[in-house]
């Protein structure tokens, strides 16, 4: 097992290297540069010397080979450099947003687990009854409705509801405050995006729980447990559900990693200053250095989440051994 974990950790490096090479060259295929965008993007007259000075300061006037060597050298030293847009250290830029994204991801994951496992279990146990149909409809709706659209509906609902009931329209805060500074304010801002993304997330996990549990419930050992006269509750909770959790854990892991950098539109809808919004801004600003760093962060999160999921497999199913 330990050998397997070490091997998996070692495999992380070529994966990161491949991602680094890809993102570096793909970004440079996009026409335009950050200086042109920053200085001429609003239609004002711009002195060409200022544009040249900007390009020279950022090093984007150098050959692509030199830029690549610089990037790789920084990567080896875990030095992402400065954002081309703001001039701030990238570690600082990402650090500022990481906390918010992590909190939303954790809240959405908790919401999803709380909803999906009981609903998926009920749906499987009561398969093809009206309860199953209700749960399936609920989960299919969750998959079909994009999180950002649900987010827009939530905001509009809050505005209209509070206006008509209290006479004053209320919307969630749009400026982040950490949970330890003001828990109530923090939750009143983040609960809504967590609900919007958690609903879709829970829908996927509910479907997965249902189908995995249905499969397990048809296994011989479950039939044997029933024949022995075990309580249905014990069969489901102790014997079936744990074994059915393998694909569910995979889904939850992948979704969690996705939430860390993939809430691109939802973060914009709620004006969350998270990694997803930063990603969009980095790409639209042609901020190569920041985009590269963000891609590397997200790839790392995915790689390590997958590693954690694999380790959880072994814990959930002792038959699994990695040799």
């Amino acid at each position: 097992m330990y050998e397997y974990i070490v091997k998996r950790i070692l495999l992380v490096f070529p994966t990161l290297l491949g991602a680094a090479i890809l993102v570096f060259f793909l970004l440079r295929l996009i026409p335009g540069d950050v200086c042109e965008l920053r200085m001429a993007g609003e239609g004002a007259f711009v002195d060409e010397e200022a544009l040249d000075a900007c390009r020279a300061n950022l090093g984007i006037d150098q050959s692509i080979f030199i830029q690549f060597v610089d990037f790789m050298w920084g990567l080896i030293r875990f030095d992402f450099g400065l954002s081309m847009w703001s001039g701030q250290p990238i570690v600082y830029e990402i650090g500022l947003r990481f906390e918010l994204s992590l909190q939303v991801a954790i809240m959405a994951t908790l919401f999803s687990i709380i909803i999906s496992i009981p609903l998926g279990t009920i749906s499987a146990v009561k398969a093809d009854t009206w309860i199953d149909y209700v749960v399936r409809t609920f989960s299919i709706a969750g998959i079909a409705i994009p999180s950002f659209w649900l987010g827009i509906l939530i905001i509009l609902f809050l505005l209209i509801f509070t206006q008509s009931w209290f006479g004053v329209a209320w919307m969630p805060p749009i400026q982040y405050v950490p949970i330890w500074v003001d828990p109530w304010y923090n939750m009143s801002m983040l609960i809504w995006p967590a609900l919007a993304t958690g609903y879709r997330y829970s829908a996927v996990a509910t479907r997965m729980t249902r189908s995995a549990l249905l499969e397990v419930l048809r296994e011989d050992y479950v039939r044997t447990a029933r024949a022995k006269g075990l309580l249905e509750k014990v069969i489901i909770n102790r014997h079936a559900l744990k074994n059915a959790m393998l694909p569910v854990v995979t889904v939850i892991g992948i979704e969690f990693a996705f939430l860390m950098g993939g809430l691109v539109v939802t973060e914009q809808v709620f004006n969350l200053n998270g990694l997803g919004k930063l990603f969009v801004e980095a790409v639209t600003n042609n901020d190569y250095s920041l985009t590269q760093a963000l891609v590397m962060v997200v790839v790392t999160i995915f790689v390590f989440t997958n590693l954690v999921v694999d380790i959880l497999y072994a814990w959930l199913d002792p038959r699994i051994r990695y040799n």
Binding site: I152, A169, W170, I174, Q175, Q268, V269
Partner: peptide, 21 residues
Amino acid sequence: TSAVFAKKYSINLQALRGGRA
């Protein structure tokens, strides 16, 4: 003063309506 950066115009509009700005 306290200014919030929000590029999306829908947020701008809702912030005025919802008393956030």
